[in-house]
């Protein structure tokens, strides 16, 4: 579904990602853990098509197509979704109508008919329930004046409406209290199926108690230094990243 090979990324001549290899098969949930500054968010932004990053080497295939060759909106229409770490507030643009326009762009791309207002509202109400989102937020401008938790729920709500093939969740757990974390995770779990894949980026293991991954990767200084099962997350929680950082340092000097 998503295949990243030897991906190197720079920002302003500074290497951030230094050769990432990652393959996500349909239905799999991959967690990417790592300390701040390890390159987690860069990876998420690069996958979604943010233009501020320079890809110096490597490739990303999405459903067999060259992902890096596509504009951000093409990626979205092809079924890639990024849940932002910091969802953007857009005063003046209605959450509902904007999402309807987005869904229709996706549907048009798939060769489907545009959805009308009545059917869209029905769909939106149904998907809001997934994340126990207040219906009032439908009528408000996108993320405008939303609390931190509401913004994260809104991201998962957008994801549910757009029905992607691969969803990248960038620190969706940051700033969530335990109740909100449970609600957001339940929403994500309800969307898990054999065709849809997830890349869950997080700093903490806590989220992975709720969204149980198939594979856990540890990203350090732009490289995946360890890959394992869900127990790797628990080990990291106990020992901290310094445990691996020391290993990496030792390997570098050896």
């Amino acid at each position: 579904m998503l295949k990243i090979e030897n991906l190197h990324v720079e920002v302003e001549d500074k290497a951030i990602l230094k050769g990432i290899d990652l393959e996500v098969k349909p239905g799999e949930v991959h967690a990417i853990m790592g300390p701040n500054g390890s390159g987690k968010s860069t990876l998420a932004q690069v996958l979604a098509g943010r233009e501020d990053y320079e890809i110096t080497k490597g490739s990303v295939a999405f459903g067999g197509e060259d992902l890096l060759d596509m504009a951000p909106e093409e990626r979205a229409r092809e079924g890639l979704f990024l849940a932002f770490q910091y969802p953007v507030e857009i005063p003046g643009v209605s959450n509902t109508y904007f999402l309807k326009a987005a869904l229709n762009a996706v549907r048009k791309h798939r060769g489907e008919d545009e959805i009308d207002a009545v059917d869209f509202l029905k769909l939106a109400r149904e998907k809001m329930k997934l994340v126990e989102m207040d219906e009032k937020l439908l009528g408000r401008p996108v993320n405008d004046g939303f609390s931190g938790g509401e913004k994260k729920r809104n991201e998962i709500f957008h994801m549910a409406v757009l029905d992607p093939k691969v969803a990248v969740l960038d620190e969706t757990d940051s700033g969530l209290d335990i109740d909100a974390l449970r609600i957001v995770s339940d929403g994500v779990n309800a969307m898990r199926n054999e065709n849809r894949s997830f890349v869950v980026i997080t700093h903490y293991q806590r989220l992975l108690d709720y969204i149980v991954p198939d594979v856990v990767h540890v990203l350090l200084d732009g490289r995946i230094v360890q890959t394992g099962g869900k127990e790797l997350a628990t080990e990291l929680e106990e020992k901290g990243y310094s445990w691996l950082e020391n290993d990496v340092a030792a390997a570098a000097t050896a």
């Binding site: 943010r50 504009a71 003046g92 904007f98 987005a102 869904l103 762009a105 996706v106």
Partner: peptide, 20 residues
Amino acid sequence: FYLRSRGISEEAAKSLLTYA
């Protein structure tokens, strides 16, 4: 970028933000 990441074209995103 946020709007484009949801499937809205660049030009439409600009029009939308200008309108807003």
